[in-house]
Nucleic acid binder design. Sequence first.
DNA 1: GACGATGTTGGCAC
DNA 2: GGTGCCAACATCGT
Length: 266
Amino acid sequence: MPELPEVETVRRTLMPHLKGRTIRSAEFRQVRVLRGDADEMARRLAGRKILSLERRGKFIMMHLSDSGGIFTVHLGMTGKLAVAGEVGKHTHAVLQLDRGVLTYTDPRMFGRLEWSEGVPASVAKLGPEPLTVEFEEFFQGLHKRKTNLKALLLDQKFLGGVGNIYADEALFRAGIHPLTRASSLTKVRAQRLYEAVREILADAIAHRGSTVVNYVDSEGRRGEYQESLKVYQRHGEPCVKCGRPIRRTLVAQRGTHFCPYCQKRR
DNA sequence: GACGATGTTGGCAC
DNA sequence: GGTGCCAACATCGT
């Protein structure tokens, strides 16, 4: 479910509950979501204090005390970190803290939990953060790619954190067709896309992310940005700019929503 | 009940 | 190496 704004909201809501807490014990009930050995991970976590929470792309990294390494979580499509501590059928990890409980629940099990000594490879290979990358670097990354813009925005090696919702929203905001070949974008239009991505993500964070189906933050609260979505899952509805119907197609095997009139192919 | 869609990404084929 | 397709899985709507 979660893209950068949702993951950032989870990180922010988790912070006051986890920072400075000591992990008393960790129990892993489903090895499928683990990268690495369950017993070893439990040993690595037990007794460590959580120093800080950092987000990179769609990953959350927990930095542990006493050179205890990093515990990294990726929520996949349906992963949920919760501080209420409800344990259900799809709860795959339970961390007992000195105050409270942290659970990881994930019905589809596309998420991953991982312990590593330093920054894990999964995070190291991510492209730059969309909210801090300079335009020049963005443009360089764009310029050499032959693929279409929708696929490129979804490529985590290009930018870390953009997913299906915000790729569609950013392309609409920039007025650019999703199938536009990345390398063909002029500098002016690339600048427009660069700004659109950043504005959309910042705005979505300010609204605590989008709840399209069932995303909630670590305190169980829904996002509000779904109210502001202009194209995502609005196919058939009128475009907010021109009134013509939003269309849905398949690009890079993902549902892709756009306005054929406001986002003409060039 | 079957079918297709869902916010992700890794692995495989070309 | 870049690019594109499919599978991993459960759930929900048609």
